[in-house]
Design a protein around this nucleic acid. Structure first.
Length: 401
DNA sequence: GATCCACAGGAAGCATTGGTAA
DNA sequence: TTACCAATGCTTCCTGTGGATC
């Protein structure tokens, strides 16, 4: 019995409340740093909702880790509770469009999120229904249950098309819903997103637009300081947070990355049996954050999608620093890899699409070039990750599978 | 100005899988 | 059980691109 007890550590010597360092953690009031103006602007835009009126549709831009989703969720939560004090039934639905990329998946997520089958008697299955059926059920749920609903579409640029935006932004006008008012908050990392929107969607969805600037080193330090009670007292050495903030500020002011680095630094200290989180662990944590990010990006990708990346990594490793490799060159190496793996290679057309998918996930960068006679226009591809990290992760995954 | 030609990428279609509703 | 639907992963076909060359 005692031996079994020794197997586990009853008390964590480093973390007192690790939840504070989770990406999904929504900080309470006073813990959101450097976003007072943005929160106030957002609240003004959706303010009519607390009286049961239509909130403005909003589009929020900003790079990764600038607090867009955090502020949108925070304002939505506050809106729901304030509306309730005014006797208005409100809610919000959150859709991660990176997960739900198609119109059907997104509508299903919204409908499921706002539904209570016991109350409405409406069932919203995960899949199997036509898109129009999901819409019909969603409209019925909204009219039955709510006066106002705010729909947060995170990473809206990852949606396949604008169809859902058209439906949501015009649901009231089109008479799809009669008792419920709808507001849409679109969140995008890409400022150019608006350019490719349908004109009709643009006019109704972009009533208000906000741009979230990246955090500077001081703000990042404050953000991390605000979550420092994730650790026990005196565990964080004084130089740890400033060092992590400086590193993250250098990399585009990404708060998410900064918090990741802090968490990893704590885990490294824990794994080494150290009583404190030292500055040197921050550097190691940064490397681990990079590898983990890449591992997360390629998780679940098909073997051929990996072979394409492997081809690019091999080219990068054997040719040193170049401004990228042409599709035809990547395809040649990819075909060799397929032969080694004893697998039939996919068509060049398909490989072009796979490369484009990797570029979309910011794993590689594509650049357009023009040759001359008999060269035409072509694309060059370059890994954004360290090629040796790519090779290592792909090899270790192959070994596992 | 016409031609060259490797390459990019849109469109259409096919096979398969995995689900719901009646 | 059957009809229907969405999603995925792929191929084939075809048109457009663009700087050098004739």
């Amino acid at each position: 019995m005692d031996a079994a007890d020794d197997l586990f550590t009853r008390e964590d010597p480093i973390f007192s409340n690790k939840e504070l360092l989770e990406i999904s953690h929504l900080p309470g009031e006073g813990r959101i740093v450097g976003r007072d103006d943005e929160i106030a602007d957002l609240a003004t835009a959706v303010n009519p909702a607390i009286f049961g009126q239509s909130p403005s549709n909003v589009l929020i831009y900003g790079k990764t880790g600038t607090g867009k989703s955090l502020c949108a969720k925070y304002v939505s939560k506050r809106l729901v509770s304030t509306a309730s004090e005014e006797g208005v039934t409100a809610t919000f639905a959150y859709v991660d469009c990176a997960q739900d990329t198609t119109e059907t998946q997104a509508v299903q997520t919204i409908a499921e999120g706002v539904n209570d089958p016991d109350e409405t008697g409406i069932n919203v299955p995960d899949k199997g229904l036509s898109t129009s059926t999901y819409y019909k059920r969603l409209w019925r749920i909204l009219d039955q249950r709510y006066d106002v609903v705010l729909i947060l579409l995170d990473e809206i640029d990852k949606l396949d098309d604008d169809a859902i935006l058209m439906q949501l932004s015009r649901a009231g006008e089109a008479g799809k819903i009669t008792d419920c008012k709808l507001g849409v908050v679109g969140i995008s990392n890409k400022i150019q997103y608006k350019d490719r929107m349908d004109e009709r969607v643009k006019s109704s969805l972009c009533e208000r637009e906000f741009v979230f600037p990246p955090y500077d080193a001081n703000q990042l330090r404050e953000i991390m300081q605000a979550r420092a009670d994730a650790f026990h007292d005196d565990v964080l050495e004084p130089s740890t947070i400033p060092r992590a903030a400086a590193l993250a500020a250098r990399e585009h002011g990404d708060a998410r990355k900064a918090i990741d680095i802090l968490r990893y630094a704590g885990e490294i200290a824990q794994a080494n049996g150290e009583p404190t989180v030292r500055e040197e662990f921050v550097t190691q944590a940064r490397e681990r954050a990079e590898t983990d990010r890449f591992r997360e990006l390629i998780r679940g990708s098909t073997p051929h999608s990996r072979y394409v990346l492997q081809a690019l990594a091999l080219l990068s490793l054997s040719n040193g620093r170049q401004d990228g490799f042409r599709t035809s060159r990547v395809y040649e190496i990819y075909e060799n890899i397929c032969r080694q793996e004893g697998s039939d290679s996919l068509s060049l057309r398909r490989v072009r699409d796979l490369l484009k998918e990797h570029a979309f996930l910011d794993i590689i960068e594509q650049s357009k070039h023009s040759g001359g006679s008999a060269e035409g226009s072509y694309t060059k591809h370059q890994l954004l990750e360290d090629p040796s990290v790519v090779k290592e992760v792909l090899t270790e995954d192959d070994a596992e599978s």
